[in-house]
Design a protein around this nucleic acid. Structure first.
Length: 264
DNA sequence: CCCCATGTTCGACA
DNA sequence: GTGTCGAACATGGG
């Protein structure tokens, strides 16, 4: 489910636990999301620690605990995070549960395409270093954006926007939204764009990220009615700009929704 | 039963 | 090296 705005929303879900102590930890030891990390070690190490801080970068999350403990979370396709009452009882998909005096922090993920990383040490973990600029960052400016297009001149723009190495946090619906707002066909390549269209694309990347973060990232609100987002989920959807039918095609390996009437 | 899903990774192949 | 494609992962919803 989560792209950068949803990831930011979920990060904040655990904020009620900041500066509180982890009293008890429940894990599902066999859950695939722990991957190479050892859930028993995570359980043992987190107990008695204070949650200090949290950060999001693209689709990645970092939670810092006292005792130089660092917890990384990637929500994959179906992961989510919640805060709930102290008495909650972990259910089938609640793979990591942190019990505090006044609340419980829950990480759930039915499909388990997500990932949990664990690190102990003074220095921040290697998997949280050398992170590329995010589209919503100031460092992600037009010159940087143009250099990306130059670097991948023949890759479809849909596929390029999904590259987490260059557009961290952008996922399937955001990529479609950006290209639709920019009136650019998703199978076009960066090399095929006029400089006018490159500028337009850059502006749409910035505004879709910014508005999504504001609306979804804080309150999980719905994006504006005028967005493709509101029309794409139901098959047989109609482009809110042209009034013509939306089309669904697999591009770069993902279902892509676009409006042939306005995206050339 | 079928098909689909807001993600990532890996191997095969042109 | 580039890019594309399909499969795999595991579960639930329509």
């Amino acid at each position: 489910m989560p792209e950068l705005a949803e990831v930011e929303f979920y990060r904040k879900q655990w904020s009620p636990g900041i500066s509180k102590m982890v009293k008890r930890v429940h894990v599902h030891p066999d859950a695939r999301i722990f991957r190479e990390a050892d859930p028993e070690i995570i359980q043992k190490q987190l107990k008695g620690k204070l949650l200090l801080d949290s950060h999001a970068h693209g689709k990645k999350l970092l939670f810092c605990f006292s005792g130089d403990i660092w917890l990384g979370i990637h929500l994959g396709m179906s992961g989510s995070m919640q805060v709930t009452i102290p008495e909650m009882v972990p259910a089938r998909h609640d793979h990591l549960v942190l019990k505090m005096d006044s609340c419980t922090l829950v990480l759930m993920d039915p499909r388990m395409f997500g990932k949990v990383l664990f690190h102990q040490g003074k220095e921040s973990p290697v998997w949280w270093s050398n992170l590329p600029a995010q589209p919503q960052d100031e460092a992600f400016d037009k010159a940087y954006f143009l250099s990306i297009l130059k670097r991948f001149p023949r890759k479809s723009l849909k596929g390029l926007l999904l590259e987490q190495e260059v557009f961290p946090g952008i996922g399937n619906w955001m990529a479609d939204e950006i290209l639709w707002q920019a009136r650019i066909h998703p199978a076009l390549t960066g090399g095929e764009l006029t400089s006018y269209r490159k500028n337009k694309l850059f502006a749409c990347i910035k505004s879709v990220c910014e508005i999504s973060l504001k609306i979804i990232g804080t309150e999980w609100g719905d994006p504006p009615e005028t967005w493709l987002f509101q029309n794409r989920w139901k098959r047989g959807g109609i482009c809110p700009v042209s009034g013509k039918p939306l089309e669904y095609e697999t591009i770069a390996g993902r279902t892509t929704c676009f409006s042939p009437a306005i995206q050339k």
